[in-house]
Design a protein around this nucleic acid. Sequence first.
DNA 1: TTGTAAGCGTTATCAT
DNA 2: ATGATAACGCTTACAA
Lengths: 333, 333
Amino acid sequence: MNPTIQDVARLANVSIATVSRVLNDQPGYSEKTKQKVLKTIEELGYQPNAIARGLVNRKTSTIGVLFPSVSGLLSAEILHGIEAKAHEHGNSVIVCNTAENREKTIKYLQVLQEKRVDGLIFVSEAVTDEYYEIFSRMDIPVVLVSTESYHHPLPYVKVDDRHAAYAATRHLIEEGHTNIGMMAGDPDDLIAGWPRIEGYRLAMREAGLSLDDSLIEPCESFQYKDGKSGFTSLMNRHSELTAIFAASDELAIGAISAAYNKSIHIPDDVSIVGYDNLLLAEMSVPPLTTIAQPFQRMGSRAVQMMVDLINGEDAESAILPHELVIRDSVKRR
Amino acid sequence: MNPTIQDVARLANVSIATVSRVLNDQPGYSEKTKQKVLKTIEELGYQPNAIARGLVNRKTSTIGVLFPSVSGLLSAEILHGIEAKAHEHGNSVIVCNTAENREKTIKYLQVLQEKRVDGLIFVSEAVTDEYYEIFSRMDIPVVLVSTESYHHPLPYVKVDDRHAAYAATRHLIEEGHTNIGMMAGDPDDLIAGWPRIEGYRLAMREAGLSLDDSLIEPCESFQYKDGKSGFTSLMNRHSELTAIFAASDELAIGAISAAYNKSIHIPDDVSIVGYDNLLLAEMSVPPLTTIAQPFQRMGSRAVQMMVDLINGEDAESAILPHELVIRDSVKRR
DNA sequence: TTGTAAGCGTTATCAT
DNA sequence: ATGATAACGCTTACAA
């Protein structure tokens, strides 16, 4: 059995109130008793029971994090940032993998509420009205990461997708390309899909290049396999392309892989710039030029906002800076 | 404020004991009162307070998981398996990233003990005497994943590294290779380093091939960057090599990348087989032939053991089957 | 079938 | 400077 505050009090010949005081260093005891208490705490190896504390303080010092996928490379990096910052602030993190599934998500939210987490971080997923309803009833702070909600006033931290996509396309243009296609996500995805397409279009228009819709390959998801098929289908339609902006690193790597199979050489035949700067962007052959999202910082920033919110301060949404990371998948024309 | 069991009792005109009974469906009430209670629970949107429950039940239904790195591709997949299975059993998961750092680890263990987690899953890291000491004092079940302890009687789930490495090397031999090198981890790492080297040696000896130690490149870690440098150094020493067994996929991908830079063609000039079967093994160019570790299953299996242990049953360590996944990085000679 | 009351291990408000 | 003691929201004997 774990020793309790009672045990400490008894052994130190003081009341539990006194022990509690030195534990939370509040005023109200002599230096002598403090030492006495500290010593017996040490002797007993006493560890305060956070559950009991949570019950009276109405504060668990743990936050719930909901991801669409835990094994996704992207989630893993965000989680890393969240976990580190959270522990820095004395908070623990409970992870929940929603698999983008409504029932699962609702179930998890229920569990998290029962566990009385102090806040929620919601990652890379759209906030439905139903979710928002639940958030409201839970009455705890919610911070969005890598997503935002137009319908609901939830603070978020993300990059400016439109701007970042513009920068990616712009880089291709500056390297002398004029036949530039795009492998995009779902155009109906207002968070990660549409803005990147818009960014691409903006750069193309500005440079006086073609805005033909068929230059844009809408992929089912941002995953590798869609990159493979998307590249093939896009190149079949537009064999004149010398460059492609892929809306995710996985799509880009998929494209590289498909290109390899068709003996299309990257970057000599076609240049590619990705989006995300996952760990694997660096490991790709050739190493991938890409737009870096500062995932870890996004995670830790979200936690910082969370902590502020929990402390009753208010937090402003944050647009974090993206960055063009130049490697070897783009060749000057 | 969240409604409490008191509120429900009051509104339903019963005692809190009765509410508690229907909540935990224990016997002792009429169907009529049950309905009445259920209805007011519904009306109030009452959710039991898991913290209060935890206090009296001495059970939090949450387990702590310690990883050396959260963003590592490998950890992410194991975590995925853990998370899914844990929630299946009504348990939550608190993630802790030790960064292989002693102080951090100890700090986390303390936090987890204060939070009174029901058990600990310890992933991919060596159990020091100090850690074991703490485990013992915590007096909760501990399960090891992808590691084991020779000094301490802790149940584990992993693959048979020696056997798996043998299978990898054997595959190369069967494909007609005779000049086979290895990119290994730290030979002093008794868990993941040494056994894979032994597996390689076993296959080489059995086939009557050279056991020259210089055929083995000891890498600092299992990471990508070490793969790059390791490949170069190994090939400088043994340019006659036609095949390499890399003790991790990251090492293998690093090797492929280094090879590309030196215009050594994979698999035409040298064949490579990896180890792990991470998501990126499939995305590699060329796709990587590798030994698959069933990471998700390892995670869920560990949780299953954990649950058994918590229920007072005992659990046996498990060696899960590895599998050779043939892709395109090996060429027949 | 139902209710009362004693914990669970803390914190915090009173007294002293 | 210290100590009783009442919460916190629940479970579980023990009574009725």
